[in-house]
């Protein structure tokens, strides 16, 4: 796990450094474009100040040692420490992500189970069609469409994660309510594709399991149909789903950027994109590092969960074939 993270940090840092130039250069470019004159001394000062004149490995070491100690560096563009810039948005991101995951599960599970147990029925065909439709629709398009309808039909602006007057206000009931209200559209939009994919996978996995001998054993034992479904094949098909959690977290956080921009949500997605565009390297680097860490933690969690769920994994671990 640790080696994975070290490798990931090196790759992230290298990739961020790959495009020519640095933040100072793009900053100057911006100033010049705005018609202002640039003082060369100030440029050199800025470079030295931010450590941009050091060789790459030194910068990497500096960045990663600080990162481990909880100092995530300084965002050039926002003129604030990274932790502050990201921190505010991180909670909102996590909120949106979790709402999305839960929505995905709540919708996908019953539909997937229905589709599998009623294979080739009209219900299965209809739901499969809807699911494929959801899978094929680009998220941002759906976001635009929903925004348009919400505006024209209900007369509410659903952009943002809360009404404007609550931004930067302390948490209160009206604010909480406003957040909930605004949460509906983003979760639906972000969740559609994931839900559709998950329905397909639950259906496929469950169909495989339904044919297995131990399911017939359970039926032959006189277990009522619903219990026989939940206790045996469904439990078995959960494996893929738990194994999936690891990749679910980062994909939802990073997959939602474009939608977040369209809906102007104050999550981390848009932040990452602007940071990458303006070569705000500490912000982008630290942010990507968060994602990598989340992924690794997610995979570890799902492995541990699998060990608990499935005695085969627990008891056969490490056996040579």
């Amino acid at each position: 796990m640790i080696p994975t993270l070290v490798l990931a940090s090196i790759v992230i840092f290298t990739i961020i450094q790959l495009p020519p130039g640095d933040y100072v250069e793009s900053y100057i470019g911006e100033l010049l474009a705005a018609g202002e004159s640039v003082d060369l001394e100030r440029v050199e000062y800025l470079r030295a100040e931010y450590g941009l004149d050091q060789p790459m490995w030194k910068r990497y070491l500096l960045w990663i040692t600080n990162f481990v100690q909880g100092d995530f560096g300084y965002s050039f563009e926002n003129q604030r420490p990274v932790s502050e810039v990201v921190g505010n948005r991180l909670w909102l991101t996590i909120l949106v992500s979790f709402a999305t995951i839960i929505l995905t599960w709540v919708i996908a599970f019953p539909i997937g189970i229905y589709s599998a147990t009623h294979q080739y029925s009209w219900g299965d065909y209809g739901l499969t069609f809807l699911g494929l439709l959801g899978l094929a629709t680009p998220n941002f398009l759906l976001a635009l469409v929903m925004m348009y309808f919400a505006q024209t039909i209900f007369g509410v602006s659903i952009g943002g994660l809360m009404d404007k007057e609550f931004i930067d206000q302390p948490m209160s009931w009206p604010k909480f309510w406003s957040v909930l209200e605004h949460l509906i559209v983003p979760t639906v939009v972000i969740g559609t594709a994931g839900t559709a994919a998950m329905i397909r996978r639950i259906r496929a996995n469950l169909l495989d399991e339904l044919e297995k001998q131990y399911v017939i054993t359970a039926r032959a034992k006189g277990v009522p149909p619903f219990k026989a479904l939940v206790k045996y094949p469904l439990r078995m098909s959960l494996n893929f789903f738990v194994a999936d959690i690891g990749s679910l977290l980062p994909s939802i956080i990073s997959g939602a950027e474009i939608v977040s921009i369209v809906l102007s949500l104050q999550t981390t997605g848009p932040l990452l994109i602007t940071a990458l565009k303006s070569q705000d390297m500490y912000l982008a680097g630290s942010f990507l590092m968060f994602l990598a860490t989340l992924t690794v933690i997610g995979v570890l969690l799902s492995d541990i969960a699998l060990g608990f769920l499935d005695p085969r994994i627990r008891l056969q671990g490490g056996a040579d074939k």
């Binding site: 001998q213 131990y214 054993t217 045996y232 078995m236 769920l309 499935d310």
Partner: peptide, 8 residues
């Protein structure tokens, strides 16, 4: 080999 559930 297959007629018992491996999870229970």
């Amino acid at each position: 080999m297959t007629s018992l559930s491996p999870l229970h």
